[in-house]
């Protein structure tokens, strides 16, 4: 494992850990170097599960979200991995369901594929992470491509959490509905919620059925909803 960036970590109710990278530099990276290095819950159980249609793909367990800046995500596979060159089209098909190509790139070759993603400035409604599924391969690398890129990394004390994201343009408002029993929202930029100021990088718990979130910053605001 290679892990050379700093995170600010908060533990909410011993249910979900919210970590946000800070003061990142170009070239910093997180590398999972084997299948055994996939993330686990608090009890040490792996969190991944196979894709319902494509067994060479796994439902991602790390749930990294880009909050600001840009990243490169690369997967490497070798003989013996569940994923092989023959499965690249399957992965591409799954990516195509979610990936926003106006701010992302994709390329591949023998034994690898990679993509870059920039937050950009195009708003979007609530949706699942495009990186929800990933190749079942030995190595995955997340690399910072822009100074002060922010990555959100929620970690589950017990599995079963769901994740959605939305991007709100400056000065505009989006509605977030409460889902599940425990529902948290991470705010990528300063917002105003029903008259209450919420600061950048804050995590709040929703107890109302729904809230209206106004982005009062000058940048696109990524919101991440985490619920169970």
């Amino acid at each position: 494992m290679i892990f050379n960036m700093d995170f600010t970590v908060e533990n909410f109710e011993n249910k979900i850990q919210i970590s946000v990278s800070r003061a990142t530099k170009v070239g910093q990276m997180i590398v999972r170097e084997s299948r055994e290095e996939r993330t686990k819950d608090g009890a040490g159980n792996f969190l991944f599960s196979p894709h319902p249609t494509y067994p060479s793909l796994l439902r991602a367990d790390n749930n990294y979200f880009l909050i600001e800046g840009s990243i490169r995500l690369r997967h490497d596979w070798k003989e013996g991995d569940n994923f092989s060159d023959a499965n690249k089209d399957d992965y591409r098909a799954v990516l195509d369901e979610h990936l926003e190509y106006h701010n992302s790139t994709y390329s591949d070759g023998p034994g690898w594929c990679e993509g870059t993603t920039t937050l950009g400035d195009t708003p979007c409604d609530w949706k699942q992470s495009p990186l929800m599924y990933e190749p079942d391969c030995y190595q995955t690398t997340l690399e910072i491509l822009e100074t002060n890129t922010r990555i959100l990394c929620p970690m589950q004390h017990e599995g079963g959490w769901s994740f959605e994201k939305a991007d709100v343009a400056p000065g505009t408002t989006i509605t977030a509905t409460k889902e599940g029993t425990d529902c948290f929202i991470f705010f990528g930029q300063a917002c105003n919620v029903n008259g209450t100021a919420v600061s950048k990088n804050a995590t709040k718990k929703i107890t109302s059925d729904s809230i209206n979130i106004e982005n009062v910053s000058t940048k696109l605001c990524r919101l991440v909803k985490i619920y169970k």
């Binding site: 533990n11 109710e13 993330t39 589950q156 804050a202 709040k204």
Partner: peptide
């Protein structure tokens, strides 16, 4: 930089931190 070889340290990175490392708190509600 950041290369972690010690299996015990790797295991720690893979799981959420326990209460002993990061004390649990309640999130403010909206």
């Amino acid at each position: 930089r950041g290369k972690v070889d010690d299996p015990q340290k790797i295991e720690k990175w893979l799981k959420p931190n326990g209460m002993q490392d990061v004390e649990a708190k309640d999130a403010e509600t909206l």
